[in-house]
Structures are given as structure tokens and as C-alpha cells.
Write a protein that binds this DNA or RNA. Sequence first.
DNA 1: GCCGTTTTCGGCCCGACTGTTTTCAGTCG
Length: 574
Amino acid sequence: MNNRELAEVFTLIADLSEIKGEIIYKTLAYRKAAENLAGLGRDVNEYWKENKLEEIPGVGKAIAEKIDELLRTGKLGFLEKLKKEVPSSLAEWLKVPGLGPKKVGLIWKMLKITTLMELEAAAKDGKLRDLPGMGGKSESAILTGLESLSRRSGRIPLGRAYPLAQEIIAQLEKVQGVIDAQPAGSLRRMRSTIGDLDILVAAKDSKPVMEAFTNLAGVVRVLGKGETKSSIEFGDGVRAQVWVHPPKKFGTALQYATGSKDHNVQLRQLALDQGLSLSEHSFAKVKDGKEIFCSTEEEVYQALGLPWIPPELREDRGEVQAAQQNKLPKLIKIKDIKADLQVHSNWSDGKLTMLEMAQAAAKRGIKVIAFTDHSVSLGVTGGLSMEDHKKQAAEIKKAQDKLGDSILILHASEVEIKADGTLDYPDKFLASLDLVLASLHTSLRQPREKATQRVLNAIRNPNVDIIGHPTGRLIPDREGADLDMDAVFNAATETGVALEINASPYRLDLDDMYARRAKELGIPISINTDAHSEADLDMLFYGVAIARRAWLTKNDVINCWSTKKLLDWLKKRG
DNA sequence: GCCGTTTTCGGCCCGACTGTTTTCAGTCG
């Protein structure tokens, strides 16, 4: 079992325990463990082999024993027993917006039904409204919740959430009296997927903001509308909420709403150490309740004796301690990026010619561009034969003449790592290219050992410079290949190959946890757009965001190096 | 069930909003 599968088991335990009515903190502990397992960045099996499961945050004796049983036998007696008490299909019910564990338990016990279909039928037949504590509104809320559940497909990719939030913010900024409007929550922390869009507005009078917000184009339902908070749903099931706070409280409010929850817990503790209670609204002196207001986040952090912490770091991954010791990393910025080392042209599946693409990149301040058109076996993309490459080289020469020294073109390839683990071109040919980026696109469902071996083969080929989107995941639809990432990192450390953070918001691969681990091991990172059109060049923004979440500085990323340093590195690699 | 430079027991965020209520419970973030 891998990290994700283990996380799913503990999430299920948490869901079923909650419906059963177990102590809430027990269920929270299971959820916490599940979250930490999913985001571990290292294979749980490694901890297990070293007998160090309890070193995983949120994993104590009881959960460590359960992981051990799962890894040894693939089963868990505790869960089997729990499922006999609480049907596991009820966990699905918790995904219905407006349905929580209490009502799920109530409906299940009173009506003796267990499936979503039965739930829908019961709601339609009017059987829910007479249950204790429920009424007509709860019943129709469950029906609409079921509807929106069928519409929405889980978390929203950052690449969809971010532009949508910017549109909403642009509309709210037009409202009279609005002084500031900012994204908050996981959106502001730039997580690769977002649950709901959170937006914070500074204004003295909230009423016109709420009016404008609930009347935005595309809103199909207003889920709530109050003085400080309102919530809406769009046609595709995406939900957004806005908080309105007076400008003098905007700093504490924005800090609070940005999270993460665990980061905020840390800050509140620091506040308490100084005799202050930190809330969404203010610092309050514990002694006399006297309030201190902060209009900016900087003031909030300053009051705690900390430098401002960039939102991307606020995940309780050591950022508070680093801030206390004045050791926050100087995070990479978009303008630090001087090279784009994965770009496609119309030689394969790109939309523009190499000249057009290079000009578009130069306009954006890029000094080196590598054309990594697909290799021969990826037929659907018009992969290039070695013969094609000769012609492409001639076109590069012509384009370079036109471009002068505004931008340097590298003749490269995104060479397929084939299902059998071999690369798509012979070594001698690979050696003739300026840069070789090797990627997985096919047979991603191979068993772990086989998939891992493919990537290791590519890493150990001395002609390969970068491993492109290492796991091959697609957000939100496709998990990446089941790779032994420890083995991948070890091999990369040995050979000095660079690992990519693919900036496409539908890839973002490596993710932040893996990228951070790679940095700690000294593995060079490459952030590339994988652009197939001019607009794709602007996706660099997302890749940099993931790099920032991974604590990367410009020194960690080969795309920030001077042209000379980059060329020397490529030359040395052969 | 987890965790610990004020605790190995006793905490674990809490406020806004809604709905079913006659002062509060459930859900959500």
C-alpha cells in the first residue's frame, strides 16, 4: 500500500467514526494522520522498514500499529469491525453539502437506509422533514446538496480557481466603498487544488459588497448571506465565499482567513505566550480584554515578533520556527527565471513556429528557450524522427539568425521513456542534442517496481539532463505513476540530473512536498512551462508558486542561472 | 487518538450562519 491508499483508509475510519458518534478528537486524530500521510513526500514503507512510523506527525502508537497491520496484511481488523457497525457507504453521504455526521447518523438509524440513491428517494418522498430536528428546509437542502454533489468533481485545479477568483475580485473592487479585496485560504497559499474560493474584502459597509457578490454573473445559488460572510455556488458546482471586514481589522482577518489552520494554531500559541489572544478580529490582551487592531498582515506578524511570512509557506512545515530564527528562505520570483527548458512548437503538437514562440518568450524576459518537441514514438503528438530533427536544426539556425542575441534557442527533445524503460532515440543521437528532457506519458499504470525502473533508467542515462513532469499526474483526473520516489531521489542525487516542476496548472509535477525534499537533497530543480501556445508561457506563474511552496530560492533552480552557467552545466553533463 | 520548554492528563479554534427552536444544534471553514 502506498501513502495515498493508507490516507484513504484513515479518512474512511474518521468518517465512519464520526457518524458512529465517536469522540470528535479521535476522528480528528485519524483525519490529521491521513492528511500527513498523503502529504508526506516520503514513502511510508521506508518509515515502516526502519521502524520509525511514530516519527510521522500525527501518528502515535495506535495508528502506527494500524499502519503496520495494513502494510503486513493489506487488511485492518479494526476497520472491518467498524464497517459492520457503520455501513461504509454512509461515508459518501458526508460529501453532500449540508449533511454532516449527526444528520447522516440520524437518517440512517431512523430510516434504515444506507445508499445515496435511497437518500435521494427518501428526500423526494418527503420522509426526511419529519425526523427530529429536521424540517422542510433541511430536506430540500439535502436535495440541492445531492444535485450539486453530482455536478462538482471534488477539488478545483488552481489553474481554474485562480483566474475565476481574479474575475470575482475585479467585480468586487468596483463596488463603492471597497478599499481592498484579496484571495485567501488555500487559493492564496497557492495549493495545487482548491476546495472553495475564499475572498476577503475591506469595506466599512458590507451590504453593497454582499449584494454585488450574490448577484455575480453565473451564480446559480446563494448558499448564505450575512453581514460578515456570504457564500455562492456557480453552475459548475464551484463555490465561493466572501468575508467583509472593516479596514482597521483587515490584517488580522486576512491572516486568519489565509490559514492554514495549523499555521494559525501556531500563531495563536505565540500570541498567548505574550498574553495576547489572537482572533479573526484583533489581538486582545488576556488581562483586560483590550483590543489591538491590525490593518495589515505585516502588523500581525510584527506584533508576534516575526517577519511577514509569505502565504505559500503557511502550512506548518517549520515556517514559524524559521521566521523566529530569521531563517525564512528568500523565495524565488517569476522575474528570476531566465530560461524555459520545455517548450513545444508546431514541429510536434505546439501551435506556433519556433520563431514565433521564441519571440513570445523573449517578450517575457526569457533569455534561453529549449524546443523539446516530442519524440518519434508519441505518434499522436507528431513526434519527430531523427530525420525530422535534422530539418528542425536547420530551422533553428534560421530563427536564431533572425532573433540575434535577444534569446538563445536550444535544440532539445522531450524524449519518451517507453514502457519497456528504454528511451526513444539511441544514445549517440541524444548526445548530439543541446538538451535532453525525458518524460513518461504512457503506461502509467505499471506496477511500482516497473514504473520506477523506467524513471531510474532515464536518470542514469548520461545524456538525460532533466526528467520532465516526473510522476505524470494530471490534476484533477489522473494520479501519477506509482513511483518509489526515494529511489528516484537517490538516483537523481547520484547523477546530478535535474527534476522538473512542470508549471502547467494541470500538472504541477513535482508537487511542493517532493520539490522541497529534492531541494534538501541538493537535486537541481527546473521549472518549465511545457508551453504549446503563447498563452501557456504565462503559466510559469503556477510553477513558481509551487516552487515557493517548496521553499525554493533562485539558487535551487537551473532556470535562474546565467546563460553561461546553464550552458556549462549542460556541456559537463554531455 | 495525539501530544507536551509552563501538562504523561487534559486539552484539542471557534465564530458565523441557518434552521428548527423557544435558547440551541448542526454544519462549515
